[in-house]
């Protein structure tokens, strides 16, 4: 008995079976008359009969929550992948040199725009908006009257 030839025969048949399974699982079973009928029947039984299990909705949502918490704890990656939708964009430098914002002289913190808007960016944007509103002349007489009434109430 030639063991080498037997092994090669086995490998060849395995190759034929693989081709047939590929066609079977693509829902276009090939006409594999060179394949033993019992193998074709077994393949059909396995393709149609093996059940698929799905986790419960409760488990799915509970794990989703855990993953969201873990992801939030990790934070966004420091180095973005090139060509990605999010990018680290430097927030325009404010003309502040005395470290009034966070106590560190010349401190500057980049904000992630497009992915996550950080709380630091929100507070900077808020400060800029207030400064802009204060510097803008109140041209509308109605607005001036309302502001005057408000000042009187607080006084």
């Amino acid at each position: 008995m030639n063991i080498g030839a037997t092994t090669r025969d086995g490998e060849n048949e395995a190759f034929v079976v693989d081709g047939y399974l590929e066609s079977l699982l693509s829902r276009t079973p090939a006409d594999a008359t060179d394949l033993a009928p019992e193998l074709r029947e077994a393949a059909a039984a396995l393709a149609a009969g093996l059940p698929r299990y799905h986790p419960s909705f409760r488990f799915e949502e509970s794990l989703a929550q855990r993953l969201a918490e873990a992801a939030a704890a990790m934070g966004p990656a420091a180095e973005p992948v090139a060509g990605a939708a999010s990018a680290v964009t430097p927030f325009p430098r404010a003309p502040i040199t005395d470290g009034a914002l966070d106590g560190r002289a010349g401190a500057f913190r980049p904000a992630v725009i497009g992915g996550v808007l950080t709380s630091a960016a929100l507070s900077l944007a808020g400060a800029a908006y207030v400064a802009w509103r204060r510097g803008r002349p109140a041209a509308d007489p109605m607005a001036r009257a309302i502001r005057a009434a408000a000042r009187r109430r607080t006084a």
Partner: peptide, 24 residues
């Protein structure tokens, strides 16, 4: 995939796609 690497919060889409397969 790249989106999830940049921002782990986007991992949810991958999770939903492959959950049943891994569980199975």
């Amino acid at each position: 995939m790249d989106a999830a690497r940049i921002d782990p919060a986007r991992f949810d889409a991958l999770y939903r796609k492959y959950l049943a397969q891994v569980y199975n």
